[in-house]
Amino acid sequence: MLSVDLKKKLKNFSLEATFDVSNEIIVLFGPSGAGKTTILNSIAGLTHPDNGYIKLNNHSLFQINEKPLPIQKRNIGYLFQDYALFPHMTVKKNINYGMKDESLVNELVSVVGIGHILDSYPHQISGGEKQRVALVRALATRPGALLLDEPFSALDEETRKECQNELLRLHKLWKIPVIMVTHDYKEAEKVGDRIIRIEKGKLLEN
């Protein structure tokens, strides 16, 4: 269970977000600049809220007036919009970078079907493949929760559908709290167990 209750002043408005995520997929849906990525960054530890708390399985990640838990110790998987694959490492080295155990990686690689590109570099593979590699790389660390920042926005329609199905399939196998950010409502409806709308920093649950 991931519990979030945070306040943070942004440029033009203040972000207020309170929600819990059990082992489900929550979609944060809203226009650009509404504060979606800030919520993900706060959970991952890349930025810190001004007030509130963030907890993962009753473990405090952030609590006002306490020293925030460093990014490295949060055990949160984060899939960035542009994947942020390490360009100078092969797919295999990318995946093994934070790997917890090898059998999990082997299983993930075969489930997602990227066994044939393990020795390729990121610039040699397609967008859909990059997306899968980034997903496997994030899951290889056995994260306690997974954050996805517009993970399919750079893909064509068909690949996007495939990757959405992939995510749903993986989530059935590894039940962890997942938060996905998107501004595509069809995608939100398809992937999300729950959809939270966000506008100018305020949450409106559907």
Partner: peptide
């Protein structure tokens, strides 16, 4: 991209 480093941090490095 700074997120390349951030990704490594989230993986526990």
């Amino acid at each position: 991209d700074r997120n390349i480093e951030n990704a490594a941090f989230t993986m526990g490095a």
